[in-house]
């Protein structure tokens, strides 16, 4: 059976660090950065490689900063 893997790309300059994506992720992929972006927000980052490309994070992101890819490997 093919395994599903995914990846997300976060536009960190547009992220406002609301953490809504963090709670929506079933794989606990998203955490928050210690660094801030140019607006001073701690932005969303990936903290593991478990992404399956479900797009939940992108679907709830109020600022539409997440792009999602999914592939069978």
């Amino acid at each position: 059976m093919a395994k599903i893997t995914g990846d997300i790309v976060i536009d960190i300059e547009k992220c406002k660090g609301c953490e809504v994506c963090n709670t929506a992720c079933p794989q606990e992929v998203i955490g928050m950065s210690k660094e801030v972006n140019s607006k001073g927000y701690n932005y969303a980052i990936k903290v593991n490689g478990n992404c399956v490309g479900c797009a939940n994070c992108a679907v709830v992101c109020p600022d539409g900063v997440i792009t999602v890819y999914r592939a069978k490997v």
């Binding site: 995914g6 990846d7 790309v9 992929v29 490689g49 997440i66 999602v68 890819y69 999914r70 592939a71």
Partner: peptide, 14 residues
């Protein structure tokens, strides 16, 4: 934790 190899247009879901 980037997977640049799957970032292709056909794999784009959102």
């Amino acid at each position: 934790f980037d997977k640049p190899e799957i970032r292709t247009p056909e794999n784009l879901v959102y």
